[in-house]
């Protein structure tokens, strides 16, 4: 998409302008006493809370726990979704056998399973992993399937005419052709991943960022609650940027991704 934007430091600063203005407004409102700290603490207070939590080590611990949970869930759910997407994309029988069932399950909000998941797994680690994996499974499954199905049939015929065997055809034609769609799935999955983790950690956990927020709520520590929210925002943004970087690397051939 070609958007007219002038080059130079101004255009680079542009995306930061609105967030910066909001933070300044927030800080000023707090300093002047318009915003009581028990409703919303000042940005400086949130930074102070971050510093305290950093020094006692609990921030890093909780962050590490949350990050590990998110990644494990993503890898487990993503791998299953990717494999089934490929299987059903490549095999008509596979699709007929599995896809209708998966489409049916997809329409159940996965968070609706929380009561059942707690009964099955208790409130341990496996319950949270299960929820995250289930959440990321569907976007990756659907987009992988869509990507494989939509590879240009003329390219597949070309590959066959040039004598590619199934393995080469898959690696050189089908997988690269499906990749843009798989990346769309990955970005959706990352959003679902954090959302699921937040819910899972606030309901039942004794560690993690979500737990940190819930524990702070009990003592009305609004600064720590806000800190947790800010951390989620940063983690989400980082995950999105990482995916964009991957897209730029692997989809450089595509004019739509060449330079964002």
């Amino acid at each position: 998409m070609a958007v007219t934007a002038s080059e130079g430091p101004f255009s680079r600063a542009l995306p930061w302008l609105v967030p910066l203005a909001l933070i300044i407004l927030w800080q000023v409102s707090s300093s002047l006493g318009w915003l009581p700290p028990n409703i919303l603490p000042a940005p400086t207070a949130v930074l102070e809370a971050a510093w305290t939590k950093l020094q006692d080590g609990s921030l890093i611990d909780n962050l590490g726990v949350s990050f590990a949970r998110a990644m494990s869930g993503l890898i487990i759910g993503g791998a299953i979704g990717f494999s089934l997407g490929l299987l059903n994309g490549l095999s008509k029988t596979g699709e007929m056998l599995l896809d209708p069932t998966l489409q049916m399950i997809r329409n159940i909000p996965h968070l609706a399973l929380i009561p059942l998941v707690i009964i099955w797994f208790g409130i341990g680690e496996s319950a949270r992993l299960f929820l995250v994996a289930l959440g990321v499974f569907f976007p990756i499954y659907l987009n992988t399937l869509h990507g494989v199905r939509n590879v240009d049939p003329q390219l597949i015929e070309m590959g066959r005419i040039y004598g590619m065997n199934n393995r080469t055809l898959f690696l050189k034609v089908i997988l690269p052709g499906a990749l843009p769609s798989i990346f769309v799935g990955l970005r959706f999955a990352l959003g679902v991943m954090w959302l699921t983790l937040i819910v899972a950690e606030t309901i039942a956990a004794n560690s993690g960022i979500g737990h940190m927020a819930m524990a702070a709520r009990e003592f009305m520590q609004t600064d720590i609650v806000v800190l947790s929210i800010v951390i989620y925002a940063i983690l989400g943004k980082l995950a999105d940027s990482a995916t964009r970087a991957l897209e730029r690397k692997f989809l450089a051939w595509n004019p739509a991704y060449a330079k964002v």
Binding site: Q154, L155, E157, M158, I161, K172, V173, P176, G177, L179, L251, W253, N254
Partner: peptide, 12 residues
Amino acid sequence: IVFQEPRLLPWA
């Protein structure tokens, strides 16, 4: 054979 469309792999 050469077709009417080049049928090149866009990612190669």
